Amino acid sequence: MRKLSDELLIESYFKATEMNLNRDFIELIENEIKRRSLGHIISV
């Protein structure tokens, strides 16, 4: 996760939620978004 750019991480989050991927996977992405202080972009 740390090698993904912020932009790609956010894009991955939206794609994963759109495709209804595994909730655990989405939570991993959400946690990384929060760690990077980007939660305001997706309202996490």
Rank of each mutant, 00 (worst) to 15 (best):
M1V: 15
M1T: 04
M1Q: 02
R2I: 10
K3Y: 08
K3V: 08
K3W: 11
K3N: 15
K3E: 15
K3D: 15
K3Q: 14
K3P: 03
L4K: 03
L4P: 01
L4N: 02
L4S: 03
S5K: 04
S5C: 06
S5I: 05
S5F: 03
D6K: 04
D6L: 07
D6P: 03
D6A: 05
D6Q: 04
E7P: 06
E7D: 11
E7S: 10
E7A: 13
E7C: 09
E7Q: 12
L8Q: 15
L8I: 10
L8V: 12
L8W: 09
L8R: 11
L9T: 00
L9K: 01
I10H: 02
I10V: 07
E11K: 12
E11P: 01
E11T: 09
E11Y: 15
E11I: 13
S12K: 09
S12P: 00
S12G: 06
S12M: 15
Y13E: 00
Y13W: 15
Y13G: 00
F14S: 04
F14V: 08
F14H: 08
F14P: 00
F14N: 06
F14Q: 06
K15R: 15
K15L: 13
K15Y: 14
K15D: 04
K15P: 00
K15S: 08
A16K: 03
A16Y: 07
A16R: 06
A16F: 08
A16L: 05
T17Y: 13
T17S: 09
T17F: 14
T17K: 15
T17I: 15
T17W: 15
E18C: 14
E18Q: 13
E18H: 12
E18V: 08
M19H: 07
M19V: 05
M19R: 05
M19A: 09
N20S: 09
N20Y: 07
L21A: 12
L21E: 07
L21N: 06
L21H: 06
L21T: 06
L21C: 11
L21F: 11
N22V: 06
N22Y: 06
N22Q: 10
N22F: 07
N22D: 13
N22E: 11
N22G: 12
R23N: 07
R23V: 07
R23L: 08
R23M: 08
R23G: 07
D24V: 09
D24L: 10
D24C: 10
D24Q: 11
D24F: 09
D24K: 10
D24H: 09
D24G: 10
F25L: 13
F25P: 01
F25T: 07
F25S: 05
I26S: 02
I26C: 02
I26W: 04
I26P: 00
I26L: 08
I26R: 04
I26M: 06
E27R: 12
E27D: 10
E27Q: 12
E27I: 13
E27G: 07
E27A: 12
L28M: 13
L28R: 05
L28G: 04
L28T: 07
L28V: 10
L28A: 12
L28D: 05
L28P: 04
L28N: 05
I29Q: 01
I29F: 09
I29K: 00
E30V: 15
E30Q: 08
N31A: 14
N31F: 12
N31R: 12
N31W: 10
N31Q: 14
E32C: 02
I33L: 15
I33A: 02
I33N: 00
I33K: 00
I33P: 00
I33V: 05
K34Q: 09
K34H: 11
K34T: 08
K34A: 08
R35P: 00
R35V: 04
R35A: 06
R35T: 03
R35W: 04
R35M: 05
R35Y: 06
R36T: 00
R36S: 00
R36M: 01
R36I: 01
S37V: 07
L38G: 02
L38T: 01
L38R: 02
L38N: 01
L38M: 07
L38Q: 02
L38V: 02
G39V: 09
G39K: 08
G39Q: 12
G39M: 14
G39T: 14
G39F: 15
H40E: 06
H40M: 07
H40G: 07
H40A: 08
H40P: 05
I41C: 10
I41S: 06
I41R: 10
I42L: 10
I42R: 04
I42M: 05
I42K: 04
S43H: 13
S43M: 11
S43Q: 13
S43V: 12
S43K: 13
S43P: 11
S43E: 13
S43C: 09
V44S: 14
V44K: 13
V44I: 12
V44W: 14
